[in-house]
């Protein structure tokens, strides 16, 4: 465990908890893409299949349980909670995320470490995570006014994968050259998708104005 990876896990955990807290405290989910949250739940379920089979460490198991339960809680709030679900921007959140699921699954069938159920699910979860933010970014551009908690949520989510890329660089030089091109390419794509968001987020922070994404 190196500092980059730990920082990455903490910013990832923080982003999910910020979102869950925002929804729990304000009982609204306007500006939040339910489709992105559903994709993240699928990412965690597909990746953490080994939760009950392989014990890596207490930290690893606890974090997996926290990620799965918190993203399930967010989806539950947005689908079932009577007060929250009313504030969901159903008409705005129109990204066809089923296309993302199908495309990344096909990609995982072609590009994987080993053609086994576990490995295909793992590669699927890595590819899907790289594009899962798309419905949320589209929704932010439509909603224009990004409330700062949602803005912070997306920011931390982008920062987490950026830390993971530093972690992979660190591990590359310290632990030798394992085949990790799958997370490498997906991680770069994922962080790249945030690039313009980071740019506007930084501008809004620098000029101390509300975050406005160009249409």
């Amino acid at each position: 465990m190196n500092a980059f990876r730990f920082l990455g896990d903490m910013t990832h955990l923080f982003s999910v908890l910020v979102l869950l807290l925002k929804i729990y405290a304000t009982k609204t989910c306007s500006g939040v893409s339910r489709k992105t949250q559903e994709l993240y739940l699928l990412v965690f379920v597909a990746r953490y299949l080994d939760l009950f089979t392989d014990y890596i460490s207490l930290y690893n198991s606890v974090m997996k349980i926290v990620f799965i339960t918190s993203s399930a809680a967010i989806v539950w709030y947005m689908r079932r909670h009577p007060q929250v679900r009313r504030t969901y921007d159903k008409e705005q959140d129109t990204f066809r995320h089923s296309v993302l699921v199908a495309a990344t699954f096909v990609l995982a069938l072609i590009f994987n470490d080993r053609f086994t159920f576990r490995e295909i699910c793992w590669a699927f979860s890595i590819y899907l995570e790289a594009v899962a933010i798309l419905p949320q970014l589209v929704l932010l551009q439509r909603c224009r006014n990004v409330d700062n908690l949602t803005g912070q949520y997306v920011f931390f989510l982008g920062a987490y994968r950026a830390f993971y890329i530093l972690n992979w660089i660190y591990r590359y030089f310290t632990e030798g050259h394992h085949s990790r091109w799958i997370p490498w390419i997906a991680g770069l794509v994922q962080t790249g998708l945030y690039a313009d968001f980071f740019y506007y987020y930084f501008l809004s922070w620098k000029n101390n104005v509300k975050l406005e994404l160009p249409a």
Binding site: R5, D9, H12, D50, I56, S57, N60, M63, K64, F67, D113, W122, Y164, N167, R171, E175, G176, H178, S179, R180, I182, P183
Partner: peptide, 10 residues
Amino acid sequence: PAADSVKDEL
């Protein structure tokens, strides 16, 4: 096994 080194990540 070394091959699974990446799989110890979240």
